[in-house]
């Protein structure tokens, strides 16, 4: 048996609907016989009548409705058709869900699923990675699973958390990642994972860039260079301790993320390591992000726009020469 990252997300939702009658799924095209633009809810409307509901193209109202339901004790899962369209719902996510517990003492347990990141040919409006933007605001947990196992257990955990969770699932991983079986339990939320051990440099990354970084590490290993890969799993909270411990072992830090370069998760990691672990560094920390342009349509441009194993290797080599 083989389960894809996408199937893991579907299975997690099926389990949540089965085990918890507070859960319902709300989003564009998630219901009926269609089951979502990526089929992450395929068959669920039939299996759980009245609990997997199609919505109008109204991202603001979809999240607003989920917030209201959560205030009244439900555990809604919102599927954004693409992460990019969650920009329409920013107000509800940031200003309503994100502030509500702080203001009133009543938490808002919504889970917003964002099909994130690039696939070739998707262009500027169907390829974005929004995790850094959401992480910037208070009151939200931001998850970025990089494996089939994490896609499954972290989604179940997201719904269990009493606070709003932005769950960034990577579209490139939907079909590319496979696993033999789904685990019952994962690492605790907020804990980073050492995806590969190595002594020469630390690559801190998350989501699909974990897979690119692992491929880069294989390439580097052929040259006798051992990269340690830290998969953040959640970008907020950020597991600074695991990152610092790794940098303490390697003395060199490269951060890789698919979102735009200005500010963001990679900058945050570097800022923390520099402030808290300056003495651990043998070279200036480096980072690699997408380019500071909209995301291009054509594969020739797209593959050069985002970080990939090849330019991660080049960046790592340069850092190791320092």
């Amino acid at each position: 048996m083989s389960i894809t990252y996408l199937e893991a997300i579907r299975e997690a939702q099926a389990k949540l609907l089965r085990d918890d009658n507070r859960v319902f799924i709300y989003g564009q095209d998630v219901g009926g016989t269609f089951g979502g633009a990526f089929k992450a809810t395929k068959g669920l409307a039939k299996e759980f009548p009245g609990r997997v509901l199609n919505t109008p193209i109204s991202e603001d109202a979809i999240v607003g409705t989920a917030i209201g339901a959560a205030m009244q004790g439900m555990r809604p899962i919102v599927e954004m058709q693409f992460a990019d369209f969650s920009s329409i719902a920013l107000n509800q996510i940031l200003n309503n869900a994100g502030t509500h517990y702080w203001r009133t003492g009543v938490p808002v347990p919504i889970t917003v699923r964002l099909p994130s990141g690039g696939t070739k040919g998707s262009g500027p409006f169907h390829s974005q990675s929004m995790e850094s933007l959401y992480a910037h605001y208070p009151g939200l947990v931001v998850m970025t699973p990089a494996t089939v196992e994490d896609a499954y257990t972290m989604l179940i955990e997201a719904v269990a958390i009493d606070d709003p969770v932005v769950y960034c699932e990577h579209k490139y991983l939907y079909y590319h990642l496979k696993s033999d079986k789904l685990p019952d339990k994962g690492l605790p939320t907020g804990r980073a994972r050492i995806a590969r051990e190595g002594r020469d440099l630390t690559i801190v990354t998350y989501s699909a860039m974990t897979q690119e970084s692992l491929a880069a590490a294989e390439e580097l290993a052929r040259e006798g260079l051992e990269a340690e890969i830290v998969d953040l799993r959640t970008v907020k909270p950020l597991d600074t301790d695991t990152v610092l411990a790794s940098v303490a072992r390697t003395g060199r830090l490269l951060c890789v993320g698919e979102s735009f370069p200005w500010g963001g998760t990679t900058a945050e990691v570097i800022a923390r390591v520099t402030s808290q672990g300056f003495h651990l560094l043998d070279a200036a920390p480096q980072r690699l992000n997408a380019k500071d342009t909209p995301i291009p349509y054509h594969p020739n441009l797209w593959s050069a726009h985002r970080p990939n194993a090849k330019n991660i290797v080049a960046k790592a080599r340069a850092l190791l020469r320092e």
């Binding site: 979809i62 607003g64 409705t65 917030i67 209201g68 339901a69 959560a70 205030m71």
Partner: peptide, 10 residues
């Protein structure tokens, strides 16, 4: 408005 809708759905 939509938040109120959500409370009623719950």
């Amino acid at each position: 408005v939509s938040v109120t809708v959500g409370t009623l759905m719950a």
